[in-house]
Design a protein around this nucleic acid. Structure first.
Length: 320
DNA sequence: CGAATTTGACCAGCGC
DNA sequence: GCGCTGGTCAAATTCG
């Protein structure tokens, strides 16, 4: 199987390779065209030649990511007390960055993707007896969302639609990066008195700016939770953040934007069943790619059937 | 008791 | 304009 790699880019560092090895000894993702899988269910997958795989990957480049980071991040929750329908935005978190992931789950568990989500709604959708659940990233500065929906045909199949970019590292990522710091668990971190809404958001943001621009390491803010500690300021401190990342996180934000299995899809060998494929549909290519798709931290929750498909944004296609 | 989830209401977009 | 549908809010409820 062809490796999806860009020259000069290290797709996996050692700890990630380790992690991937732990995750699955049998998953071998396959990339397919969007045509093959659009509207396709688990049973309608088909294999594609390896040549297509490498050409199919037109995912985010470093440039894309940097461009995304340089864009001001709108936080709709901070701007109004009552959130209204999303206005199309440019940059991170914009609503046209949308991807659907099909996951075959067992035991009724919901896919764990390394991020912390809070459920904020559930709705019964037309033509599907199973309700759709709406989740938002618990990080107050992150506008990433996801919708989880059980397939009508196969109740074991979950369709997870991710929307928006995460502005921080996933939970497991941080935990693995600092294995020596056993005391720094979220539970043990003393909490700051909570400010209300916009005030808190602004304060958090400014603290990030100060911490990052002054070269202060994240460890210099012991009163922040792990997830917040890992949160990166996408605005003013961007440049220094990159420098810090270059040292601390050799891959920068790429690992947060490109799922592990996409970055090195053939890591785990070639002997797989027809169900074990990882589908990624990057065409037509949007400006930015969701960072939400990450390998499960709890493989028992997922039956190794990851099916990526690019969910075409209606508005986007209309605009063309 | 605080955090997370549930659930009914509300609103915007879209098609007719 | 109206009705349908999807997405979100926020009060109520449940959970740890």
């Amino acid at each position: 199987m062809a490796q999806v790699k860009e020259p000069g880019i290290c797709w996996l560092n050692e700890s990630e390779k380790e992690l991937l090895g732990e995750l699955s000894a049998e998953a071998s993702p396959t990339f397919v065209s969007s045509k093959a899988a659009d509207g396709g269910t688990a049973g309608s997958q088909r294999h594609v030649p390896n040549t297509l795989i490498s050409s199919a990957y037109s995912g985010p480049t470093i440039e894309d990511i940097e461009r995304a980071l340089s864009t001001k991040v709108p936080d709709v929750r901070a701007n109004s007390h009552r959130y209204r329908a999303p206005v199309p935005e440019k940059g991170i978190g914009k609503s046209d960055t949308k991807y659907a992931v099909k996951i075959k789950s067992c035991g009724g568990g919901v896919a764990e993707d390394g991020y912390k989500w809070r459920k904020y709604g559930q709705k019964t959708i037309k033509n599907n007896p199973n309700p759709r659940s709406y989740y938002r990233c618990t990080n107050p500065r992150c506008s990433a969302k996801r919708q989880v929906e059980r397939s009508k045909e196969d109740p074991n199949m979950l369709t997870i639609t991710y929307e928006g970019l995460h502005l921080h590292y996933p939970h497991f990522h941080v935990l693995r990066r600092r294995p020596q710091d056993h005391t720094a668990t979220k539970l043990q971190v003393p909490k700051k008195p909570k400010l209300q809404g916009e005030e808190q958001l602004h304060k958090d943001y400014m603290e990030d700016v100060v911490a990052v621009t002054s070269g202060e390491s994240s460890q210099g803010s012991p009163d922040r939770g792990l997830e917040e500690e890992a949160t990166l300021n996408p605005g003013a401190g961007k440049q220094n953040m990159r420098l810090r990342d270059a040292a601390q996180y050799p891959q920068g934000l790429l690992q947060d934007v490109v799922p592990l299995l996409i970055r090195e899809p053939c890591r785990t060998g070639s002997a797989v069943s027809s169900l074990h494929h990882y589908h990624f549909f990057p065409t037509p290519r949007p400006s930015y790619y969701s960072a939400s798709i990450s390998p499960p931290t709890n493989p028992s929750d997922i039956d190794l059937g990851l099916h990526f498909r690019h969910s075409l944004n209606l508005k986007q296609s209309k605009d063309r």
